[in-house]
Design a protein around this nucleic acid. Structure first.
Ligand SMILES: [Mn+2]
Ligand SMILES: [Mn+2]
Ligand SMILES: [Zn+2]
Ligand SMILES: [Zn+2]
Lengths: 135, 135
DNA sequence: AAAGTTTATGCAACCGAGTTGCAAAGTTGT
DNA sequence: ACAACTTTGCAACTCGGTTGCATAAACTTT
């Protein structure tokens, strides 16, 4: 998995063994995963190390975090070009049946007309419903 | 405050002293408040009682809860006619400076075109930025 | 009005997600 | 080989939210 190694380097993250393993898990995942989910993907791994790995990934914009209202933050890979700016934002979908959280990367967050003299920094938009696998 | 009493009765909530006090606090508030905020509005009140009061209010749609991503859920009064259905949903605004959370009741949540065979139940849309009081 | 039943309140204790401190292990540069 | 820095692992903690249970208050029935 030389590819993941260079993904890390592209984001200026030192490619340790742990980090490559975590990145592999994230790459194999079609839905976003929580810290607890991630922990369960390993036989024996320290939660704090995984936590800090995710933090490092997020700080360097390799992944973004999603607060879907379930009480546990989810994480998903950013696109190669993503800088996590407002224009990179997309809608997230939480399936109330399977509890999976998906990045709807094709659906940009719609713009809103805020009241006068409210300035926008970022938007979190989470749609809840039933996903295609749960119909 | 006979008005609050009837607001409670309209929502089929038995108007106890505690509940009327809590409703008064919520009515006086222009922004949404958390359980902790509510607790601080009283000299001496049990957090659990307040917690259960909010739960009761929410179940009966007197108030709605807002997960603004700060880690503590906020609560705000519903409109008299609100049934908390998708058509009643509005955008919420979290000021990153004063940390106040506002109901933008005039701004309905924009509709999104979900991928095929995803069905919508509800949407949470939180805009972050600087509010009019913090410019 | 007294007894019985339901509902609301208060205290303690718990829970889970996230976070911090610190020491050990590993890495990098000289 | 040594020093300097980074990463990892363990323990312990924080904080918001929640449950269990006993008491108190409010209605119901006799
Ligand atoms: Mn996403
Ligand atoms: Mn609102
Ligand atoms: Zn699903
Ligand atoms: Zn503000």
């Amino acid at each position: 998995m030389k590819e993941n190694e260079s993904k890390l380097e592209n984001r200026h993250i030192k490619p340790t063994a742990m980090r490559e393993l975590v990145l592999k898990v994230l790459s194999d995942q079609s839905a976003a995963i929580s810290l607890a989910d991630l922990e369960q993907k390993f036989e024996k791994a320290d939660k704090v190390t995984l936590y800090r790995t995710l933090k490092t990934f997020e700080e360097n914009k390799l992944i973004h975090s999603i607060d879907d209202g379930t009480g546990s933050v989810k994480y998903a890979l950013c696109k190669e070009t993503c800088q996590c700016h407002p224009e990179d934002l997309h809608v997230h979908f939480l399936c109330t049946k399977c509890k999976q959280t998906y990045c709807l990367t094709d659906i940009p967050v719609p713009s809103v007309n805020l009241p006068t003299r409210f300035t926008l920094e970022t938007i979190n938009m989470v749609v809840k419903g039933i996903c295609v696998n749960c119909i």
